[in-house]
Design a protein around this nucleic acid. Structure first.
Lengths: 107, 107
DNA sequence: TTCTTATTTGGTATAATTGCCAAGTAATCG
DNA sequence: CGATTACTTGGCAATTATACCAAATAAGAA
């Protein structure tokens, strides 16, 4: 891979990596329903607020979400809803794998 | 997050993690063009064959590619082309980020 | 059978990720 | 002003990922 091609795939990987964590996938899914503050997301996730904040900051840095501070609270929104299409694909992969495992047991 | 929900997001994250690496994204992209053996992919990537083999094994484990041994060679194919849709979305995120960076410079 | 080729697996050093706590910022309230 | 609330950032220990080399496997050729 030449340096230019590598750089392109690194940039892509950076964005995908931002979603490659259960908590961050959950955050994306929650934000798909609409704007939410860090406090509400923290409640839903059930981790330390600093942990959730760092996950959100990573998603923001990747360009997937954006934040908006209003008063004391910071509201996050999903900026690129197309990432949700991936979820459907992923579900397909999971079903395919499950069907395969079943077939292996039956044979 | 309750344990059941967590498990669902962990399963999803596992599949996305499999793509969250520049080399593996490149491999997926190459396999989208058609079946290729490990030797050819190794040549294209330019890393140790053991490294490429491990990347492919990870993708296979996630259900994204499948392998087929014929003689001495092992041929890999993309099993879930829907992951390619993500690439278009990712490009969109990258363009959006670039446009934003430009706007920040101009202001 | 032994030799060669294509690939995988084991081992290991190095680097990156993660999550919590503690400390820092920023906006609002009294 | 100081106090409080909502969030971010720094620091650090524990875990996980990555890449190479070396050794193992598997299939075909001599």
């Amino acid at each position: 891979m030449d340096p230019k091609t590598l750089a392109r795939y690194e940039a892509r990987a950076h964005i995908i990596k931002a979603m490659a964590h259960p908590t961050r996938l959950f955050l994306v899914d929650e934000l798909a329903k609409g704007e939410k503050c860090v406090c509400e997301l923290t409640e839903l996730v059930g981790a330390d607020i600093s942990t959730v904040s760092k996950h959100l900051s990573l998603l923001k840095n990747a360009g997937i979400v954006q934040d908006d501070k209003r008063g004391l609270m910071v509201f996050y929104t999903l900026r690129t809803p197309c990432v949700l299409n991936l979820f459907a694909c992923i579900e397909g992969v999971m079903k395919q794998k499950a069907a395969e495992a079943l077939a292996a047991l039956e044979s």
